[in-house]
Design a protein around this nucleic acid. Sequence first.
RNA 1: GCAGUAGUAGCUCAACGGCAGAGCGCCGGAUUGUGGCUUCGGAGACGAGAGUUCAAUUCUCUCCUAUUGCCCCA
Length: 401
Amino acid sequence: MQKEIDNVKGFQDFLPPESLKRDYVKKIIEKWFNLYGFVPIETPVIEFEELMASGSEDEAVSDRFRLTDRGNRKLGLRYEFTFQLARIFRQNPNIKLPFRRYQIGEVFRDEPTSSERFRQFTQCDADIIGDSSTNSDAECIALFADILKELKINHEIKINSRKLLNSIIKSVQIRDSDAVMRELDKKEKQGVDAVKINLRKYAESSQIITLFKLLEKDIKFFKENAFDGIDELNELAESCSQHKIKVKFEPWLARGLSYYTGNIFEISSQKSSIAGGGRYDNVVGKYSARQIPAVGISFGLERLTKLVETKTEDSPKVILISISQDAEAIKLSKQLRKSNVPCTIFFDKPSKALDYANSKKIPYSIFIGEEEIGKKKYKLKNMETGKEALLTENQLLKKLA
RNA sequence: GCAGUAGUAGCUCAACGGCAGAGCGCCGGAUUGUGGCUUCGGAGACGAGAGUUCAAUUCUCUCCUAUUGCCCCA
């Protein structure tokens, strides 16, 4: 019986050139994380089910992959990183705060797939733990804005406050504010009218009308009327302008995760969301008998990579063609690599080597044969112009390095 | 998870209830120390399983995967 060969739904391979593009994007992300003073951490992919489930009634919890080991432990694959921070701070209470950590790694969700939603994806998180200042909120946004700038991705940054949205909803006497927030968050996708209709399940039409009138007001209005959470939101807006970052106040914005406690933000590009984040002051200290404030930003490597246009190099700079002079070729390759020149050696016929160089767009080839060794020189060929030159090893290194 | 659509070579696509084809790509030769062009040749596919049939890639069912919408979520 022939076995079926297929990827599991929602899991994918990355082959060149896609894999190289991912690597390129990832390196830029890591560079900026470091420039903002974040340090990397790594955590296990598998955790106890209880750790992932406890406390929060978050919907995401039901969408995680569950497993059991031979000792019958009830385990699961991590579906995000944040809950692991609570464990880490319980086990390492002496971590100096504020702690700026980043993590890039695979997370798993057993949920429906679509063209941009996978069941395994690479999540990139940067969080500032132990600082309640809104300057930290702004820095998370600024960090991501710098990444997008380098990747040349157009984007829009939206900010809101969970506290503000809650108090807006409560001010019109609607009870089920969580459900209402979930509906409001769909405005972008489904349109205002659809949202209004869906809200009838939770509120009277007069309440809905009042609610929508409020949602059209600006920050100033909410400040004058002393709505809850508006001060932090206002500070965030000011801090962003100090970073010279344009943000848009979007009172509809709710974001999915229920653990947000204050300012929230979302960055979108070409109408789809590519990053989100906010303040979650009650998660990290969950097992630690103290409150540990935190704010962070999170985004997926796949979605970001999809928006990047840059072409990436998938070839070495030089191909060494050994014409029955393997020892000499290997010796030269060592020298080139020492000088940071990526190269590969071809031990086949020269015509094959050149053909390979063409199809891989390798810019230079070097002939290493009896003739060259006799003269203690190497023949360097520019693959684009076809020009050849006999050079000594030092001349070669100088030219290619 | 539910509903719709789809799945033929590595890719893009044909045809067909009765031998499955092209272009591009790949491999090899012409060309044993010089590539891109040319030319000759080669390998390679009906997503998987079951059923109907003399005969199934084609019709039916189940499963898998992709895609769209819903639910949900980033």
